[in-house]
């Protein structure tokens, strides 16, 4: 295994995480309780308590490239049981934001699903589930995903085949555009009421 040089932590990274999460990583004394309770640990490449340790050591790249960040479902076990009151789930959320910004997506399908979901929200104002599946398949090429579930759901009318569009759909779309810092298309700026 690699030797970690302790004198060279990425202190800017540590500061960013501290500021964006509002949490103090040095409060962690490595008891392992977050790992102990994490339902997803079996699927992780780096256990969450080790992510906390690597964070203390300022190991940016190792953390942002790990798969665990994408597999965490924010179930909050770690946050609820941390003896030092650290909102661990929030730190992981922030690390995931930073991984996205840095262009890492080590669990591509998880990212694709989230993207497809938000594209659906942006388009319709509400999630159109069939649309999410279609978007996900388009991004991943995984046509056979859950194909066996179709016959179970379709006859029950659980899958709406048409999106519910809402009046405020354009408002939602603008939220997304502003979030991305995109200019407003000429046709839709002004005039419309929310």
């Amino acid at each position: 295994m690699e030797t970690i040089t302790l004198q060279k932590p990425d202190s800017q990274f540590l500061r960013d995480v501290r500021e964006r999460s509002g949490q103090e990583p040095s409060n962690c004394y490595q008891c392992g309780n977050c790992t102990a309770g994490c339902p997803y640990n079996f699927a992780y490449d780096i256990p969450v308590s080790r992510i906390m340790r690597l964070l203390q050591l300022g190991r940016r790249d190792e953390i942002l490239q790990c798969k665990s960040l994408w597999l965490c479902a924010t179930c909050q076990s770690c946050t609820t049981r941390c003896p030092n009151g650290i909102d661990v789930a929030r730190i992981v959320d922030v690390l995931r934001h930073m991984a996205r910004e840095a262009g890492y997506a080590t669990e591509r399908n998880v990212k694709a699903f989230g993207d497809a979901f938000l594209e659906s929200v942006e388009k319709h104002g509400r999630v159109f589930e069939v649309g999410v599946v279609a978007g996900y398949v388009r991004k991943t090429g995984r046509f056979w995903t859950d194909i066996e579930l179709g016959p179970k759901m379709l006859p029950k009318g659980k899958l709406g085949l048409r999106p519910h569009s809402i009046q405020g759909a354009e408002h939602i779309a603008r939220i997304f555009r502003r979030y991305r810092g995109e200019p407003e298309p000429a046709a839709t700026t002004g005039g419309e009421t929310k």
Partner: peptide, 18 residues
């Protein structure tokens, strides 16, 4: 009236303000 999606898990994994 005219409720929209809360953003669910995908939104907070992207950005807390969004």
């Amino acid at each position: 009236p005219d409720w929209s999606c809360c953003g669910s898990t995908p939104a907070h994994t992207v950005n807390h303000v969004l």
